[in-house]
Amino acid sequence: MKMIKIKAGELAPPSIKSKTANSFIRNNWRPIALISPTIIYLMLITLFPIINTVDLSFQNVYLTQQFKPIEYIGLKNYSEFLSSREAHDAMIKTLIYLSGIIIQVILGVALAVLMNHYTSHIKGIGVYRVLLSLPIFVTPFVSGILWRYMFGYEFGLIYHIGSFLGLENILWLQSSSLVMLTVVIVDIWQWTPFIFFIVYAGLQGLPKEPYEAAYVDGASHWKTFRYLTLPMALPIITLAAMLRFILSFQAFDTIWAMTQGGPANGSQILPVYLFKAAFSTFNTSYASAIAVLILVFIIIIGQSIGKLLSKEVNRQG
């Protein structure tokens, strides 16, 4: 009886439900009109790929063995991933790679503060600004290739600078323990300007009056930064760091062009591992399982970023 009651309770108020839905639409027609095109567009195009990927992850599809019968094999792909040494290794490498973002943010903010400090004293600051932001514009695939050229034994620039300083035998790209550091350095080179670009523009827009007051009070540079600049610029720094973090999941081209994940899997971060599963070994289903796990990971991360930023969001209401 009870169960039926609950069911009936669920079924009973369709009129109420549609009424609330109607009033919801009536109250919210403006935001719905503004936002729904984006939501529908994104849904339309990502829904099919996501369902398809999840479905594939439970099967045993190989791109190269389509003559074989396709079966559902449950969670086998997932358990294989979680127990694989290579996958653990890739996850650790990914964390190392992501930690480089902290350095990028610190350097980028420092650079922006430095440039901002001298803006009115140095002529042609605009030229410096453009020159400093150039690394962002280098196509990632090209920058990977370019750095391979720079690190090249005998003919590379780095090799020659190294031998000038007496350090010629640093195996930047040839040592599986050092290669990740090289990858992080290249990443810092390419993305610090990105943080700088955004933060500098933000600093330029800060009001001038507090600084004048601080100058009159004789506050030190550090104090001015700590108690004036940093609090005022925090939202833009957060935005820059967050954008960088989000974009970092797309990192693949540079590493692929530079090392293909080697030597000895030394620079194999998760996207490279995923690419290899999909297109070097053609294990479509296993690759799909990795993609799903990355997706879950991203959603968790997205939620925690959400909590981190919820203050800001609420402030805006």
């Binding site: 040839q174 899997n265 070097s280 070994t281």
Partner: peptide
């Protein structure tokens, strides 16, 4: 054999690990 890509991937990784003394 059709599993050549996987085999090459396995062999390539192990050889790289051997040469770099991993």
């Amino acid at each position: 054999l059709p599993v050549e890509p996987e085999a090459q991937e396995i062999l390539g990784t192990e050889l790289s690990r051997i040469v770099t003394e991993e």
